[in-house]
Computed example of a mutant assay.
Amino acid sequence: MSTETPGDDNARHAAKMARIKAVRDRMMQTKTGEKGLVIVHTGAGKGKSSSGFGMILRAIAHGMPCAVVQFIKGGWDTGERRLLTAHFADLCQFHAMGEGFTWETQDRARDIAAAQAGWDKARALIRDPAIRMVLLDEINIALRYGYLDAAEVLAFLQTEKPPMTHVVLTGRNAHPDLIEAADLVTEMTLVKHPFRSGIKAQPGVEY
């Protein structure tokens, strides 16, 4: 028969948490650097663009000027586009450059031209040191289909991005060299998706 009391459990828990805190505090003392990050959100699962726009809203909350360039979903009337352009245009530029997914346009030359226009706009925004975060939404798709040169994009980020500017690149099938060079990479894993059960894309969830 156990003679332990709830007080014993609480004491053990408190001691365990104190040890964890001490280790965390020592680790955090070594993390003092700051830099502008290259961040990649990729993978087959949902949430890549959603996460990127979450970071944009976080930057806005800190009063950090930011910008969005959409490479694919330019024609979509999305919730994030409505919110940012209607309420935060003073802090966030929004440029919808794409014309839809490649199977919608069915015109490779047109897709390439739209992607290049998006990349030209992105470079100008990234070069501006006053802009602290730039979201390149779905650029990974443009890179995957060869609409943009991955080596050129990577070289620009490595040589011309201002030191304190964060650049977020979203889209599935991120280029391996981009993944290697990035500071932060998150892969969204598909476990279940309602589309497979016949549920269409819905406002507030997909856009």
Score class of each variant (00 low, 15 high):
Met17Lys: 14
Arg24Gln: 14
Asp25Val: 12
Arg26Tyr: 06
Met27Arg: 15
Gln29Val: 06
Lys31Phe: 12
Gly36Gln: 09
Gly43Asp: 06
Ala44Ser: 12
Lys48Val: 03
Lys48Ile: 05
Ser50Gln: 09
Ser51Asp: 02
Ser51Gln: 06
Gly52Lys: 04
Met55Ser: 07
Ile56Met: 11
Ala61Leu: 02
His62Tyr: 13
Met64Leu: 15
Pro65Met: 08
Val68Trp: 05
Val69Ile: 13
Val69Gln: 07
Gln70Arg: 05
Gln70Ser: 11
Ile72Asp: 02
Gly75Thr: 12
Thr78Asp: 03
Thr78Arg: 10
Glu80Gln: 10
Leu83Trp: 00
Leu84Cys: 05
Thr85Ser: 13
Phe88Gly: 01
Ala89Val: 00
Ala89Cys: 01
Asp90Gln: 12
Gln93Asn: 03
Phe94Asn: 01
Phe94Leu: 04
Gly98Thr: 07
Gly98Arg: 08
Arg108Ser: 09
Arg110Met: 14
Ala113Phe: 07
Gln116His: 12
Ala117Thr: 10
Lys121Arg: 15
Leu125Asn: 10
Ile126Gln: 11
Asp128Tyr: 10
Pro129Thr: 11
Pro129His: 11
Ile131Gln: 09
Ile131Asp: 10
Leu136Ser: 06
Leu136His: 05
Glu138Ile: 02
Asn140Ala: 02
Ala142Asn: 10
Ala142Lys: 02
Ala142Val: 04
Leu143Tyr: 02
Tyr145Leu: 13
Tyr147Pro: 01
Asp149Tyr: 03
Glu152Tyr: 02
Val153Pro: 03
Phe156Val: 09
Leu157Met: 13
Leu157Phe: 05
